[in-house]
Nucleic acid binder design. Sequence first.
DNA 1: TTCCGACAGTGGGGTCGCAAT
DNA 2: ATTGCGACCCCACTATCGGAA
Length: 505
Amino acid sequence: MQLARVIATSAAVAATRSRNEKVAALSATLREAAESGAPVEVVTDYLAGVLPQRRIGVGWRGMAQLPEPADSPSLLVTEVDAALTAIGVLSGQGSTAQRGTAVADLFGRATVDEQAWLRGLITGEMRQGAGDGVILKAIAVAAEVDEAAVRRAVMLAGFAGPVAAAALSGGSAALDEVQLEVGRPLRPMLAGSAPDVATALVDGDEVALDSKLDGIRIQAHLDHGVVRLFTRTLDDVTDRLPEVVDAVTALSAETAVLDGELIAEADGRPQPFQVTGSRTMSSADPARLRSEIPLSTYFFDLLHLDGRDLVDAPARERWRLLSAVAPAHVVPRLLTSEVAEAEQFFADRLAAGHEGVVVKDPQAPYAAGRRGAGWVKVKPRHTLDLVVLAVEWGSGRRRGWLSNIHLGARDAETGELVMLGKTFKGMTDEMLAWQTERFLGLETHREGHVVFVRPEQVVEIAFDGVQRSSRYPGGVALRFARVLRYRDDKPVGEIDTVGQVRGLL
DNA sequence: TTCCGACAGTGGGGTCGCAAT
DNA sequence: ATTGCGACCCCACTATCGGAA
């Protein structure tokens, strides 16, 4: 199959907002790929805007200068896939010059449209309005199988490409053969969110509240003494985490798949996320890291035990077995149907230094890969009144609007304004239109896509916490900042101070 | 007819490892 | 030594479509 065929479909998908039309276009191309003997796995990934190699060491900078495009399309999907694999290998060998030559070779054979599409694929910014959700439905339509069967297989297999290939060649019988495999990561279940505990507890039914640990999600596979550890995005990080491997090896099971969180602790208190994150992402001498920043292992779910798959079992049953298998590693948890009791637990967990709670339905199966109602996280919300220092022009659907705002707090001593970070979150289209006009009216000068403004507009910001920053002059930055509302009832002289923010560290 | 679940898009901060400067 | 880049941890929120109620 020609790459141009895939790109034509991508263009058709981007041109409509109707998901049904997107599915129709995608499924037709998938079927064409299967019938023509093209690699369905690769075509599926390409149609979803996913790079099969995941990473090849090339980003926007590595594609800033490209050769003249070809006049007419000639690239085949298989050639492109091979070329991208080769580029990834060269990156792994550290030969930047050779990698650059390989990138130039590939792009030199691509037309203008193909160059633009390849750039989107490689940077992961396809923005055609079709990701996983639409692709899974398209696979089902193309293979004439049940969409639920496709979803289930993708959850258990972790990735859509191989499932598409199986469905198109073997139909629903092939999908039924896709099962949880110990040693192969499956998609982790995700949580929705609620503003408070009372909202998360619906109608007097009993729920579990798990302590929400601010660390790194981990999926642990134990297979007769052999352990593999995967992150939320299914990367294998086993070699970096020897103490976690030891903890899993010591469990009283032959085979098991567990879901949990790793976190650095000191004197029984959780360390800031930056400490856990830095330890987990470092691939330096694991033995040294283990002694300097040991990680504690907490599990909150059990997906497989000694030959039995548990993803469809009710959570209560999975928790019972987890307590038997890993009694020393179960996350702090409360079962209750009383709002007051739940709120007390929430307060206790915060007092212990944790992030909040995750409210879970004891009846729910493990809905891998979905952000369903089975799990609901609750975290406290802080707010500050800050001033807008500058605004950036938006991109994509925000093109033409001033979008991302720079936030400043007051230095109580000098009276100067100190930048604490940026945010683009929480803005409705109406607010975007309003703030575009407002900030153009306050403009002082521009640098690139940043419009600097007279610091006169006060904004109320919500955020989850503060963290140390080497980027911003106050030494602190806000975590997950979002706009609540613009305030015209408060002068800039009365906004919150950087000292107050530092006090939250 | 209205409601609501799922999804895609639009980006945020920090850190590590590596190659080039 | 420092800087730039790519990769990958943590993420919130709104608009929209289309099936459910």
